[in-house]
């Protein structure tokens, strides 16, 4: 459904590339997460794939449309949820969705159904400029589903939302994924990516460093760890020890013999830890 080959893009006429030689593909019904810190090139990549930025170098196909020959009909098949909410403040939530659905061909989801899904049905007739940041974000998210997209581009879909709403949004994404929607998720939230995606790509400084499934990455780069809390004379100490490293295994044995153990948990590496290991950089 999405095929990107050697995409390169520069905002400064070639002086500095925002992304360089990015290649990946997303199959039908697959959820792919592009992970990276701010300024890594996630949004530029998504911008090219959604037609918001012109393709400068490389090749890309989205829903069968060659982006070098962009056709408006492609947009009937895609939905885009922006990181920064962008709705019409002087229109009500319902009017926003009613207007947007008229811009597509074919069948659309009933706006009230969508508002109910994102918990905005009670304020359907309120103007969007009276909404909180989170409510506007939910409206932007709901709007991206109105044309029942085959490919769904989600840019930081849960950023800035309270945990309950974020969980609701995640649930909607999971449901749509289960119904066969192809998803391209761009985020710096590794937990979200781990939870929602079949494949992840680590992007940093405009380069895609690695693409694989979260499970493979954990198997390949993750270490089995033990988090142990133990009591010394009057304090409680905590250590994270590798179950692979011989010295650390010995250290764990010593702790067990010498001290009173308070808690002890095995833990697998998180995507964030793997990201740092692979790229040498954090996600902030």
């Amino acid at each position: 459904m999405i095929d990107a080959k050697e995409l390169t893009y520069s905002y400064s006429k070639g002086k500095k590339n925002a992304i360089e030689q990015i290649s990946f593909s997303v199959d039908e019904g697959e959820a792919f997460a592009l992970l990276g810190p701010s300024g890594a090139g996630k949004s530029t990549t998504q911008g090219i794939l959604t037609g918001l930025l012109p393709i400068q170098q490389g090749e890309a196909t989205v829903a069968g449309t060659d982006l070098h020959h962009l056709s408006r009909s492609m947009f009937n098949k895609i939905g885009v949820s922006f990181e920064q909410s962008n709705v019409y403040g002087k229109l009500t939530a319902l009017e926003n969705l009613e207007f947007y659905r008229k811009l597509f061909d074919g069948s659309a989801i009933d706006p009230m159904t969508l508002l109910k899904q994102v918990g905005l049905d009670q304020v359907a007739d309120k103007r969007a400029d009276t909404f909180s940041k989170g409510m506007k974000h939910r409206l932007t998210f709901a709007r991206s589903m109105i044309n029942q997209p085959q490919i769904w581009f989600l840019d930081e879909p849960t950023t800035g939302l309270d945990p309950a709403i974020a969980s609701q949004i995640k649930q909607i994404i999971k449901e749509r994924k289960a119904s066969g929607t192809t998803i391209l998720l761009t985020t710096h939230n590794m937990v979200l990516a781990d939870e929602l995606s079949d494949k992840v790509g680590f992007i940093i400084d405009g380069q895609l460093k690695l693409v694989d499934t979260p499970r493979n990455l954990k198997l390949r780069y993750g270490e089995k760890l033990v988090q142990v809390e133990y009591k010394t004379e009057d304090t409680v100490k905590s250590e994270l020890l590798s179950m692979v490293d011989e010295q650390e295994r010995k250290r764990l044995g010593d702790i067990i013999h010498q001290y009173e153990i308070e808690t002890m948990h095995t833990r697998e590496a998180t995507l964030e830890e793997i990201f740092i290991k692979v790229t040498g950089r954090g996600l902030v």
Binding site: L52, S73, F75, I78, Y88
Partner: peptide, 18 residues
């Protein structure tokens, strides 16, 4: 200007309207 301020042009540009 309203479209610019709210960045709704981006949403328009990813819809099927020419």
């Amino acid at each position: 200007v309203e479209e610019k301020q709210a960045n709704t042009l981006a949403a328009i540009n990813v819809s099927a309207i020419s």
